[in-house]
């Protein structure tokens, strides 16, 4: 069993939006200055809380996108039009605004980079965010851990971090990225063009004999499908870590 640690009380604090990056039409990254941030692990999240003038509060969890090495904390948020929190974070918030958050939170869905095992990352939509923190952590430390990302998006325009993933995958240091576009594909698309299935996983995943550690993150149905396919393929269930975003999030 992994060690837990006495961390003391989880405290709400304010971060200031230093930069906004529109990643896709519906997804933006908020780069935050958080005074006294104590650091985090790749894969952890923060809770974000909004308070209305009448005192009403809404709270959601967002995965941290930045690696532990960055001085600023980045979260990447998908705007859900009927959400309570995400429409504010993607569209309303401006540079210089303060955002109330607490964290880092979580210890199960983390990758420290001190593991020799090859890594398989499986993402659906904005489920790529905590996996990107792992990929950035790997790059920041010049780790050569063999790593494969299988990333499912609706369309080419919906691929979050597309240019950065292209750049990191072309470095030839053991990271490969395979995309599948489930709804719409641009002309000349050479990647996969269907929902995740066992044939796709068999092509992208490491042979089970290599005992990879697997992180699957995305909408609940996609995560459950991928995780059960991997277990059917013979992967050790204990080495398949999952994080479900639900269908909404907010």
């Amino acid at each position: 069993m992994a060690r837990t640690a006495v961390l003391g009380r989880l405290i709400w604090q304010f971060g200031t939006v230093a930069e906004l990056v529109q990643e896709t039409p519906k997804v933006a990254s908020l780069i935050l200055d958080v005074p006294g941030w104590t650091g985090h692990l790749a894969g952890q999240h923060v809770d974000v809380r909004l308070t209305a003038d009448d005192g009403y509060q809404a709270q959601r969890s967002y995965s941290i996108a930045s690696p532990p090495e960055d001085s600023r904390l980045a979260i990447t948020v998908e705007r859900l039009d009927d959400g309570e929190v995400s429409p504010y974070l993607v569209g309303e918030v401006r540079t210089g605004d303060k955002v109330e958050l607490r964290g880092p939170i979580g210890g199960y869905f983390v990758w420290r980079g001190d593991d020799e095992r090859p890594v398989l990352l499986v993402a659906g939509g904005s489920g790529v965010v905590p996996l990107m923190a792992m990929i950035r952590h790997r790059a920041a430390n010049h780790l050569k851990t063999p790593t494969r990302l299988l990333y499912s998006s609706r369309s080419y325009e919906d691929i979050i971090y597309r240019a950065e993933l292209d750049r990191l995958a072309s470095a030839g240091d053991g990271l490969t990225v395979a995309h599948t576009l489930t709804r719409m594909q641009p002309a000349g698309w050479t990647g996969y063009a269907r929902r995740l299935d066992s044939a796709m996983l068999a092509e992208v995943a490491w042979p089970k004999a290599q005992a990879p550690i697997v992180y699957v993150c995305g909408p609940t149905p996609m995560v459950e499908n991928a995780a059960s396919l991997l277990v059917e393929m013979g992967f050790d269930p204990a080495s398949v870590k999952t994080e479900r975003f639900g269908a909404t999030g907010g």
Binding site: M1, A2, R3, T4, A5, V6, L7, G8, R9, L10, H45, D47, S61, R102, G103, I105, G106, G107, Y108, F109, P219, T220, P221, T242, E243, R244, F245, G246, A247, T248
Partner: peptide, 23 residues
């Protein structure tokens, strides 16, 4: 669709136990 996992209550459990509880 509404089904989540233990990661979603990591913050809540940490409030209660003052520990990282997802592991």
């Amino acid at each position: 669709d509404m089904k989540l996992d233990g990661n979603a209550i990591a913050g809540l459990l940490r409030e209660i136990f003052s520990m990282e509880m997802t592991t």
